[in-house]
Design a protein around this nucleic acid. Structure first.
Lengths: 253, 253
DNA sequence: CCGTCGGGTTGATCCACGTCAAGGGTGGCG
DNA sequence: CGCCACCCTTGACGTGGATCAACCCGACGG
């Protein structure tokens, strides 16, 4: 079964829609948007997917709003990995590992600018500040990717889920009294892939978190963190996560 | 026990030395070296370490020869992760996740150029070709990092070891008759950390590989792949690994 | 109204891998 | 030479999480 088939299956039972994440993009994107450039402006519907063939290695997407994921699938077996991008992030197709299939999928409605890498490089060469912001942005994303790799490699299930909740809270959470409300842009199955866990296992973990009073759940995609401190304490990388997010504007100030 | 302590312990029992990997660096480094720049040239002894404090986030290292690793250690627990870099690679300190401790360690004797990121950006701004090569190099490394994350997240022990052997063969192997000889720049414990496996488990896996006739072993650090095809077949990502290396000069031509 | 279909939950079972412990190999050093 | 660190190997054992299967639920279409 190809990635495309799997996507198609999922599409029809996803009625709920999300507002684009409204966190403001960082220094690079604001500067980029100010330039009169030859970018193509994209509006992505939720679940819309862009296949990244090897021929498209020279495309660069700059995410303005919404949440977008890249997915890679191995030839054999169903296993895949999901990486998440948030407003302000840059997605260079050439930086996504070249598996048998790789695609970019909008987890929420999203807006992005698409460049050919040549055009982007021309822009960067003309504006030293833009270049510096671009470089820092890529450093930050590499740092996040490395952190996520460390999470998958060294932490067990509950710790991984805690890390995910913290990350989502920092990116998408809105304070609601003593709790933090989060509208999850991914299905359980997708979260499981993002965390390199089995969907069944993830479901068990979420049930346990609910039973322990760490989170509560309004609907399938709406959850609330009831005990931030406890969640942060159970995950050894929470400090590193918060350090990465501290540099960027966040809904939780 | 801090990372530094652990390193110090290991230092004294490592008599064997390695010749720097002689693979020629890629397009970016050759172009970079041609410029009269304000880089500091470093010669690293084997096992020499450079601590990367947060204050050093603006350093960029360009690896000319040898093999270098970055290591991150979590505050709690001994768990860490090891990332490997080969000649031609660029190591931006700001792209290494900011854990409680992170360091750069020479796995073999190595030569590198050290830049302040500001100086590097100035250079890049003056030479469009250099900028393009830099960008491609970072894409390639991000791609490799993503691939490694996928390996750790989705593959089981034997598959991970196979992937490691393939990668090392492509980077460091020399054809010796029907076999491929590799001089491993890492100890078993370090390989285990690189693969997010337990050292005991890794030892068992290597024994099994030996028993199955996949590899043979001259000394602790010298192994030979006796059956390339079988090793490649047991690892779902071997195609992707070879695709990434295909773009670069390799000792196995 | 019922039937179907995809996703989520939960229980029972199994196995790969981590953990603990014991022992051998090797190089450094007194 | 013998001692000491450290690295590696191998066995026994326990467990976290993958797998399989059954069931529930909400959405959609007739």
């Amino acid at each position: 079964m190809t990635l495309r088939d799997r996507e198609r299956q999922q599409t029809n039972t996803r009625a709920q829609t999300f507002a684009p994440a409204q966190r403001t993009p960082g220094a690079f994107l604001t500067r980029l948007a100010a330039l009169d450039s030859q970018a193509t402006s994209l509006k992505l519907r939720q679940r819309q997917r862009i296949l990244l063939t090897p021929a498209q290695d020279d495309l660069i997407f700059a995410l303005q709003s919404g949440v977008v994921s890249t997915r890679i699938a191995m030839a054999t077996s169903e296993a895949g990995l999901i990486t998440l991008y948030f407003p302000g992030d840059v997605i260079a197709a050439g930086a996504v590992p070249n598996f048998s299939e790789r695609a970019l999928v909008a987890a929420t409605p999203a807006e992005a600018l698409r460049y050919k890498s040549k055009a982007m490089l021309r822009l960067l060469a003309t504006d030293p500040d833009l270049l510096a912001a671009y470089d820092r942005q890529r450093d930050r994303q590499a740092s996040r990717a490395g952190l996520h790799a460390a999470i998958l490699a060294t932490l067990d299930g509950p710790q991984r889920l805690a890390a995910f909740l913290i990350e989502m809270a920092l990116e998408l959470g809105v304070a609601a009294g003593a709790t933090i409300a989060i509208e999850l842009p991914l299905s359980r199955t997708e979260i499981a892939q993002h965390l390199a866990l089995n969907a069944d296992t993830l479901s068990r973990l979420m049930s346990r978190f609910k039973a322990d009073g760490l989170i509560s759940q309004k609907s399938r995609h709406q959850i609330a963190l009831r005990n931030w401190r406890a969640i942060a304490d159970m995950c050894p990388v929470s400090a590193a996560l918060m350090a990465i997010e501290r540099n960027r504007p966040s809904p939780l100030n």
